[in-house]
Design a protein around this nucleic acid. Structure first.
Length: 272
DNA sequence: TAGGCATGAAATCTATTTCG
DNA sequence: CGAAATAGATTTCATGCCTA
């Protein structure tokens, strides 16, 4: 339908009707869905069926042992955040933070009240009086004046970010080993910070921005202590990572067994 | 074509308000 | 009064447009 014809039809039908009726839209959603998470979810499903997990492991030349009883595949992996949620003592929470950050003013921070401790790290929206808050809720803008040393500032900032990052798919091959998969459709790798004020603060201190993949590595290996292989799943060449093994969606889907999959999944995959 | 900037949905957490 | 709903702040994830 050409533009003018469409326009006159839209005016003629201005009194009502659905988008589908107005546009005479007959396509099935799987023909034009462009949601990255949807693709990741389809991939997740495929990993759980047939022999696809084994096939994927061989595709990426995974050479570490896999313990059947410890295997787990997770979508939107938020392990660090959820470990924090399991902690119920302020003493333990504070000790965890201070041992991982090892700040110069350690003694001072040990002595602060709960409220003062939260305030030091600028917990948002409001520092709590009752319990040590999740580092994921620290605010760079609020603590930047409290942490003057650049190295410590970067350390605290990466620590804070680590509590919020969620790799798309993580495969635990054992409790101590994993594969971390970052899925990209249109966009390329992101970097932190993204907020303009925070970027300016990084510039002022002469600090480089932190790549998304580098933060994932820090979270998986340094904080969770899991020996991790990283995979980047991409559609376009220019999205490839400098540091991580990159695979194309097309090449991965081509090797997976789609037996038993409904038609819409095949169609979603066929478009990639 | 990469980076800057604008935009938006969804989620979490806390404080406040409302209601039984 | 205490539980439940609501509002606000902040963060994440993302896309698109413009420009150097």
């Amino acid at each position: 339908m050409d533009g003018s014809k469409l326009k006159s039809q839209l005016i003629a039908q201005a009194k009502g009707g659905s988008i589908s009726e107005l546009l005479n839209w007959h396509k099935d959603y799987c023909e034009y869905n462009r949601e990255e998470r949807n693709l990741a979810a389809i991939f997740y499903h495929l990993l759980l069926i047939n022999d696809n997990l084994a096939e994927f492991l061989s595709m990426i030349d995974y050479d570490k042992p896999t313990l059947v009883d410890e295997v787990g595949i997770y979508f939107e992996y938020s392990n660090l955040r959820d470990i924090w949620f399991n902690l119920n003592s302020n003493e333990i929470k504070r000790r965890i933070i201070l041992s991982l950050l090892a700040p110069q003013n350690l003694k001072e921070l040990e002595e602060l009240s709960v409220l003062e401790f939260n305030t030091h790290f600028g917990a948002v929206p409001t520092p709590s009086t009752n319990y040590i808050q999740n580092p994921g809720n620290w605010s760079i803008k609020k603590y930047k004046n409290n942490i003057t040393n650049n190295e410590e500032f970067l350390k605290a900032t990466k620590f804070k970010w680590a509590f919020n990052v969620k790799p798309d798919i993580v495969i635990h091959t054992t409790k101590r080993t994993a594969i971390c998969i970052e899925c990209k459709y249109q966009s390329g790798e992101g970097s932190y910070p993204t907020d303009i004020e925070e970027i300016q603060e990084f510039r002022r201190r002469g600090l480089d921005q932190v790549q998304q993949t580098s933060l994932q590595k820090y979270m998986m290996e340094d904080l969770l202590g899991i020996d991790t292989q990283f995979i980047y799943l991409i559609q376009k060449y220019n999205a490839a990572s400098n540091t991580h093994q990159s695979l194309y969606w097309k090449q991965v889907f081509a090797k997976l067994d789609l037996s038993g999959c409904p038609q819409f999944i095949r169609q979603c995959i066929a478009r990639i």
